[in-house]
């Protein structure tokens, strides 16, 4: 535990343990977000395996590209047999597996989930350093910054309509989250702040209806009807006067350059409800 924590600290400061003179040659990723970022940044042939979620179009925005890689089960045994010289994991990827891999002498770089747009940039730089692809990562950050400032300076920012994310079970990622910052970057006022939700939580439908936001951002993509997603079809939600914008988890759950697509789509929705 302390070791994992130390690793995490090391990563926030810059992944020191993954900066050998020669860049890793056989990289295995075991987390949906590191999968996609590594696919974007790795040199040809450098990344050998990604998690099965990466090729699932419901969860991943890079499902097509992921088919070119073999999928690993995420279990230590499977990953060890791939003989990686670097493993990429998320902060919440099976702790036992990560500890086992470290005992076996395999370097593991741990990437915390992006909780802000600044984290997205930092994640790109960290991944570049881990893979020995700093120049590519810096170029990616530069593109990201340029596109973000272009989006942020769009017209109509004087009025900030209110938007609320509302997912299965009434889940809301909170104001201080990547989704929260995306909502604000698109020129919206985030209802989560008014409801006192700094971090993730559940919004009672009644509170959402009473707030009557200008836009409700919902996702309903997993298929297979569940009770959890039933709330998104509640008649009271359908009768709200504000707009409705679909946004699937895959569009904004990982700190990828494509979060700017989410900003762009929400920006377009803002033009719509602003009128």
């Amino acid at each position: 535990m302390t070791r994992t924590f130390a690793l995490l600290l090391a990563l926030i400061a810059g992944p020191a343990q993954t900066a050998p003179a020669a860049a890793a040659q056989r990289v295995v990723s075991m987390n949906l977000c590191t999968d996609q970022l590594a696919m974007l940044l790795a040199a040809p042939g450098q990344l050998v395996s990604v998690s099965p979620l990466a090729s699932d179009p419901v969860s991943s925005v890079m499902a097509e590209q992921a088919k070119a890689y073999s999928a690993n089960s995420g279990l230590a045994e499977d990953i060890y047999l791939l003989k990686p010289d670097l493993v990429l994991a998320g902060a919440f990827t099976g702790r036992a597996t990560v500890a086992m891999l470290e005992r076996l002498g395999i370097p593991v770089a741990i990437f915390p989930p992006a909780a802000s747009i600044a984290d997205v940039r930092q994640g790109m730089l960290d991944m570049g350093r881990a893979l020995g692809r700093e120049p590519q990562a810096e170029a990616m950050v530069a593109d990201f910054d340029a596109r973000l400032s272009g989006l942020a300076s769009g017209p109509g920012h004087a009025s900030r309509p209110t938007a609320a994310a509302y997912a299965a079970n009434g889940y809301n990622p909170g104001r201080s989250s990547l989704s929260g910052e995306i909502i604000e970057a698109a020129g919206f006022h985030n209802l989560a702040g008014d409801l006192g939700m700094e971090t993730a939580g559940f919004v009672p439908l009644e509170a959402l209806v009473m707030a009557d936001p200008d836009l409700v951002i919902t996702g309903d993509s997993y298929g297979y009807t569940t009770r959890a997603e039933e709330i998104l079809r509640h008649p009271a939600l359908a009768r709200l006067t504000g707009g409705r914008q679909p946004m699937e988890d895959r569009d904004w759950i990982c700190g990828l350059p494509s979060v700017l697509d989410a900003v762009e789509r929400l920006g377009a929705a803002r033009q719509e409800v602003g009128r």
């Binding site: 079970n169 298929g223 297979y224």
Partner: peptide
Amino acid sequence: LSPNPFAASEIVF
């Protein structure tokens, strides 16, 4: 067994 990630959280309900 459901492929939907929200299903498991419904056990409580």
